[in-house]
């Protein structure tokens, strides 16, 4: 069936079978392969994208269900080649090893910051329930999200990073 999807600010018109999952539409049709698939049961979170700014698992959603909504994928975060503060925080804090869960972690991390602008480490641990990582043991991911939140808050207020309470 024909459907229109808005992804990272660009409108696309696609003709896909009804059963196409959003993640497959993104990966196979739009070739946005940064969104990954790590399970079949909506547990691992590697497929996390934002739907109208809210984190969802794109493997547990039909592409057609995303019609009329704004989809943001990992490819939509960096602006003009400059990493988003959350991406940069993952780099600085070694929040990734094999990189496979990373896009989902970053998108979930941003969703945490949306709800908790300066989350403490315990909040991040609890709120990261929907994402699995097998490499890092999570500790550096948690630090990265805290630091990313701080950097985002600092950027929003003009304050210098390091002055906040995120760590």
């Amino acid at each position: 069936m024909e459907m229109r999807l808005e992804v990272n600010g660009t409108a696309h018109r696609l003709d896909l079978p009804e059963r196409t999952l959003l993640v497959h539409a993104l990966r196979d049709q739009l070739r946005l392969t940064g969104t990954h698939i790590g399970c079949d049961t909506s547990q691992c979170g590697a497929c996390t994208v934002h739907l109208d700014g809210v984190a969802v698992k794109s493997c547990t959603m039909l592409a057609v269900q995303a019609e009329g909504r704004r989809i943001t994928t990992i490819e939509g975060l960096a602006k003009d080649g400059a990493l988003h503060p959350m991406q940069l925080a993952f780099h600085i804090h070694h929040g990734l090893q094999c990189g496979y869960c990373t896009p989902g972690m970053i998108m979930a991390g941003l969703d945490i910051v949306r709800r908790h602008p300066r989350p403490d480490l315990g909040t991040i641990r609890a709120e990261l329930e929907g994402n699995l990582c097998r490499c890092t043991g999570y500790h550096n991911i948690i630090r990265a999200i805290a630091a990313g939140a701080e950097a985002m808050a600092a950027a929003a207020t003009g304050e210098r990073p390091g002055e906040g309470q995120g760590q």
């Binding site: 990966r27 969104t35 990992i74 490819e75 960096a78 940069l88 070694h94 990373t102």
Partner: peptide, 21 residues
Amino acid sequence: VPRLEDRRFLMGAGNYVDDQL
């Protein structure tokens, strides 16, 4: 030192087998 290979993974530009057609 932070890793040289991070950028592509952070950008969603990692290149895994299933990404290729």
